[in-house]
Design a protein around this nucleic acid. Sequence first.
DNA 1: ATGAAAGCGCTAACAG
DNA 2: CTGTTAGCGCTTTCAT
Lengths: 355, 355
Amino acid sequence: MATSGSGHIPGETRRSVTRSDVAKLAGVSSAVVSYVVNDGPRPVAEKTAKRVRDAMDKLGYVPNASARALRRGKTETLGLVIGDSLNPFFVQYTFELVTAAAARGKQILIGDSRQSASVEKGIVDELVARQVDGLLFASPFARHYAAELLDIPTVLIDCPGPIPGRLTVGSAAEAGAEEVVTHLISHGRTRVGLVIGDHGFGNPDPRERGWRNALAAAGLAAGPIARVPFSREGGYAAAKALLCEDPSLDALFASNDLQAIGALRALNERGVRVPEDLAVASFDGTKESEFSWPPLTVAQQQLSLLAAGAIDLLEDSETTMGKHLEIDTILVRRRSCGCDDGGIDHPSADLVAVI
Amino acid sequence: MATSGSGHIPGETRRSVTRSDVAKLAGVSSAVVSYVVNDGPRPVAEKTAKRVRDAMDKLGYVPNASARALRRGKTETLGLVIGDSLNPFFVQYTFELVTAAAARGKQILIGDSRQSASVEKGIVDELVARQVDGLLFASPFARHYAAELLDIPTVLIDCPGPIPGRLTVGSAAEAGAEEVVTHLISHGRTRVGLVIGDHGFGNPDPRERGWRNALAAAGLAAGPIARVPFSREGGYAAAKALLCEDPSLDALFASNDLQAIGALRALNERGVRVPEDLAVASFDGTKESEFSWPPLTVAQQQLSLLAAGAIDLLEDSETTMGKHLEIDTILVRRRSCGCDDGGIDHPSADLVAVI
DNA sequence: ATGAAAGCGCTAACAG
DNA sequence: CTGTTAGCGCTTTCAT
């Protein structure tokens, strides 16, 4: 036995260790190394297998994923295309998707289309070039050209309703929005404004419909609407505009957390008290909504369920076609609507060390 | 000419279009297709090239990245290992890294180690298997075992100071912390607490040193310290603990935005007025810090500079070795320290449509 | 200016 | 149980 523990000879040529290096050192054929690495398709004598594993360790062998993908024609990898990777909602969604995929032994490659159709085209090409086994889309353009790529299984993961012939996943947005707006109304609010985006996920946006439904069911007139980007800045501008447009406003429903958080800043700046003067609620329920001031009452999307569902749908895409998976939102009551807010959801006071 | 516009025959076998399909259709050899795709290494007659391009379009040809990587031995891809991909700081950092890499024609593969050394090991193996040309680490474990993989260029991207023989990038954290704490003191604060993490980036953490320096320079005694996780929950717990530990506290410096945001919620809940009763500042300067209430005064890290520097360092890693790139932080004054806060940084009021 | 062909590292028949 | 080998799609040297 050589004494070189870590197995890599410094200053040596850069070529990486291959399967045949391992085979040579273990005194077997390269096929056997393959059988050991993949635990099949043929059995290997335990004694031999051990020799091979030792050789792999010694040489620091890592199988070449490109070669494997080339040979197998599949990569155990999924592609994810997002329209805005800085939005905490998609950040959390991505995290859950990666987790769900990992549980099924799959990796995820992420691309941010930056809301641009042409950038997105490039990303999809790249993902296809990398031979992803499936594609997940959280992007406005998806429904259009994704139709051309039907040779690769595709799921639209931020989709408000079924689309014929497509696999889709989404929250029950209309019902969720209606529930949270109804809750606002139950606090005695009668003039509820809406902050919503323009090129959202559906037309009219189901969150807008939910807001209308709640108002109508309570016999209230529709409040003013501000259409702004789905961003903190958008919400900030919207709140300012709405406040000056309609002084009788006593509540606000925002179509995502980001807009609500922007609105809160505008409100706080002007000394409008939330919830006393104006109640606020939003749709999404990201972590950030729990730590705003005041903490936001939200229709919370169940991301781990959505994510697991999306991955499952992709897995079974051979057999399933044209299915829509809908997950209910959860009404989370916090301070911004006027409910009593009992502190954060998962305290960790035990972890404090004060000196 | 066939009339089938999109070029893909539905119901046909799944095998994807290869270079030789294109070659056949264009009536050239596969080598020529390669020359056209790569614009070299041999010139191609313009007429021939056009025929090839037409064939590619017609067939919807996308080069197979695995085959190319296998042949070339490189992937034009970088690996990024993060300890917590949900932290907005790393989210923004990642975004900038992807942008900087894209500008140089490189992709980035991201892995989240979830603060676990063993998970991280798996991620690195996966990245190595995928033949990344370089590795970026924003993770506590990096400095240890990354030493074994010196055959692949590596940059530590969240590193407070030089490490012999390693490429490192980081903000001037000690100076930045000192500047922002000094600023707190300039508002007349004399009892400044510290909220900091445990297994941070350096020991003692440079942010802690900066805080001490500022206090010492002003002839003030060190305030109380709370050691908590680098999370919103951690900051929440820390503020509660510190408040009850030391009622004379009139300022707080948090080692990251997340902790400060958690602290703000605890303070707001208790009716402690910020900044009147207690000033707050933090380190990082993510977007979230601009939209908290009150907005946070921060030592802001210059992520686009750090990211561009990190990518450059990796590019030149052949020639450069053991370099540390340090970028200054920027003091951003907002309401939480007692400064007048003039509204958000990039308003977009022009984008509002009110109905 | 273009074609033929070797070979990157791996998997999976097939043959012992 | 293990060895031999063809070939995945691509790049590139060597011919032509």
